[in-house]
């Protein structure tokens, strides 16, 4: 398998904070890697090194087989970036924004309307970006990332703060690009999103990657499936969690059943969030 992105022991610190601490990972062609971590974990700093905005202070990065320290412009011609901040030209229209960025890639003719349709953004031709809602801006950010038909996409929290409809529209575009063979680096602190979209996820916390694997493997290996059981006790509703792997599970169910009236019971799979907490001792949000 071709390694489209390869990071070897890369590190970056701002003044005294070591934001990224010698991490290594790779992404295969056509794969989506979900970079999952809480605020301040070092996700954006990692992306900035991969796209050439920050030079790693240690380690090496290659994208599409080229060294970012040597052939940055060649790499940048073939990548698309969706930033965390909505860094669009607010006083210009969506089409003006797209045309300007296309021109920087030397693309003279673009079908801006088709691109806007692809991200499901319906706007007046002359409407300025300043008047867009958050979701509209984010869709335009996605459209801009696709302007040069990139082989690799870097998406920094592309659905952060969006309503379900906008988030869905953005996710559909991501999956469509994957279908077409794009390699995608995606950061998020939404574990559901990481679960749904990623082929593999990496947990990052305090600048370090604690584990990288497919969501299924992680859940299979580290997650315990549980049984949730609710019953009435002295007029109150009690809830109890039993591990499905526990040998004494059925004994306990019988016990409850004989003493109290069971209201309901159902099994639950461990979420990535649970596994994340297990690995890092930290919640993803809050």
């Amino acid at each position: 398998m071709e390694k489209v992105i390869l990071a070897e022991k890369i590190a970056y610190s701002y003044n005294k904070t070591l934001a990224v601490d010698h991490i290594s990972f790779h992404i295969d062609k056509g794969e989506i890697l979900g970079f999952l971590g809480p605020n301040g974990a070092g996700k954006t700093t990692t992306i900035k090194m991969l796209i050439g905005l920050l030079a790693p202070q240690d380690g090496k990065i290659s994208v599409l087989g080229m060294d970012t320290a040597k052939e940055l412009n060649k790499i940048q011609a073939q990548i698309g970036v969706c930033f965390e901040e909505k860094n669009l030209y607010e006083e210009m229209s969506a089409i003006e924004n797209l045309k300007f960025f296309a021109s920087l890639f030397g693309i003279k003719k673009i079908d801006a309307a088709a691109l806007l349709k692809k991200v499901n953004l319906l706007v007046e031709k002359r409407q300025k970006v300043a008047s867009f809602s958050k979701g509209m801006k984010q869709r335009l950010m996605m459209a801009r990332a696709l302007i040069n038909y990139p082989k690799v996409l870097f998406l920094d929290e592309p659905t952060d703060g969006l309503d379900p409809v906008s988030a869905r529209a953005v996710r559909d575009v991501i999956l469509e690009e994957k279908e077409k063979g794009a390699t995608i680096f995606l950061t998020t602190h939404d574990m559901m999103e990481a679960d749904k979209l990623s082929d593999r996820v990496a947990f990052i916390n305090e600048g370090k990657i604690s584990v990288i694997d497919t969501p299924e493997n992680l859940k299979h290996e580290y997650g315990k499936r549980i049984l949730k059981i609710r019953y009435r006790l002295d007029g109150r509703v009690e809830e109890e969690e039993l591990s499905l792997e526990d040998k004494d599970m059925s004994k306990r169910i019988d016990e409850i059943n004989s003493k109290h009236s069971i209201l309901d019971m159902h099994t639950e799979e461990a979420t990535l969030e649970d596994i994340f907490i297990k690995f890092t001792g930290r919640k993803l949000e809050g």
Binding site: G52, L53, V81, F83, E85, N87, L88, F101, G106, R144
Partner: peptide, 11 residues
């Protein structure tokens, strides 16, 4: 507004 970043990740 970090638009400079958007320009600098193009060629």
């Amino acid at each position: 507004k970090k638009t400079a970043d958007a320009i600098l990740v193009t060629p």
